[in-house]
Design a protein around this nucleic acid. Structure first.
Lengths: 238, 238
DNA sequence: CGCTATTTTGACCACGTTCAACCGCTGTGG
DNA sequence: CCACAGCGGTTGAACGTGGTCAAAATAGCG
């Protein structure tokens, strides 16, 4: 597993590094980093790490999409986050405990770099500014998680689904032929797991939204036709 | 508002500082810190800060108990955390900046220190090790929040209530006369808000648990009689 | 002691889960 | 080439948890 198998000489220019938590790192440190990490290709449904697995280091997404989820005792899954190019995985649990707090599974074929825990920590010690970057990231993640708690606790599944669609629009939405196409392909089950409900309810909501002309569905792809009206829904109970 | 109105000469020995994120700080830095902060007494139901308020600095609980909650559009509250002596408030939102993510309200009269944002940040810059402490703390908080998402999404209210009781036992439980008395007094409404349900359901659960002889209630205080059996419940669906 | 806030109980009902059957598509082996 | 299995998606019917609303009981407080 050679580090950065393709175009290794300018790998530190890959999005994972200059955009994410390593933004602003010196050329020298980027080189150290570059020579320390390994790169790998993952296919859909591959598991990068399981919940409870020991944390060996940090992962950086170069391309593709990955979902992070937790599994309950009776096998139900809750998707916590969907990450893509530029995001990192494992940096959060690295500071608190020994094991991963969630499972990371590839939803769209991905190139992912890995950086060993110790190398990461030594780079971090040499560059205190990175800590602040991570603090900022963790802090945002925490805010988002707390928001999600409130959502699941008190909002109807319908509203949660609308909010999911709008969030997906933000990250993956492309305006095209008068509609916002969500450039991400999730199964009904995955959609359900993202809002904490069952596949059946997700299906029913989709057909409801189709007949309301909020959205249109082609194959696996969902497009939003009237995001403004969807946004309205979240304002009231519905 | 003189800094550390009581026994100011050894205030840096107060739990908030030597136990929390400032553990291991040098005598000199503790002195700087000590002279920078102000102390205040808050009574039950007083608000320390509201959600959306700008973040002016960090708070350290010296005594008493404080709840952190978010409020939904229709006025329902979700308690995210209950903090006590040694804990700090506001350190999390400080890095993603802008405003507080939750409201902090006193549930038991409290002494609370305040440290200005800029003073805090300058101490932090001078002591990179603090960042790591905070990273660890944030990381744990995030894990906990994510756990809570899973709980609310897929566990019954009954199980969530049991888990709340067991969590409270961990933080506030005192073994006394064969029962574990929870040394914290929460209203039925607050209990409900902690598990994301309504007051009525909380009341019903309490009377159910009383008649099952799991718990006993005197005035505002709840005692657990058979924590082991309660723990059992969480293992299965129930 | 009266008034307000909190707690408790009851009846009702809706949302969302569960379980079951069915459809349509894709890939596979006979 | 078709048959069939398997998977993802869809729909229907029934049920139950937990929320809502209303009203009564109790506790707390000036």
């Amino acid at each position: 597993m050679k580090s950065c198998n393709v175009a290794s000489q300018n790998c530190h220019l890959c999005q994972s590094l200059d955009k994410g938590i390593f933004e602003g790192l010196s050329k020298k440190d980027l080189d150290v980093l570059d020579s320390s990490k390994t790169s790998n290709r993952y296919k859909r449904k591959q598991i990068i790490f399981y919940e409870e697995n020991p944390i060996l280091g940090v992962f950086f997404i170069r391309s593709g999409k990955v979902k992070l989820y937790k599994t309950s005792r009776d096998g139900k899954r809750q998707i916590l986050k969907i990450v893509q190019a530029g995001d990192s995985l494992g940096h959060s649990s690295l500071f608190s405990n020994r094991s991963h707090a969630a499972t990371a599974e590839v939803i769209e074929d991905a190139d992912i770099c890995f950086l060993d825990k110790n190398k990461f920590l030594s780079i971090l010690h040499a560059n205190p500014s990175i800590s602040l970057k991570i603090l900022e990231k963790l802090s945002k993640d925490l805010n988002q998680a707390e928001e999600q708690i409130l959502d699941i606790a008190y909002k109807s599944v319908r509203v949660r689904f609308v909010e999911l669609l709008l969030t997906l629009k933000q990250s993956f939405g492309v305006y095209e032929d008068g509609v916002y196409k969500l450039e991400i392909s999730l199964s009904r089950e995955e959609l359900a797991e993202a809002i904490g409900t069952t596949e059946e309810t997700a299906v029913r909501l989709i057909s409801e939204f189709k007949s309301n002309d909020w959205i249109e569905v082609h194959k696996k792809s969902i497009s939003l036709k009237k995001p403004e009206e969807l946004l309205q829904l979240t304002e009231f109970g519905y």
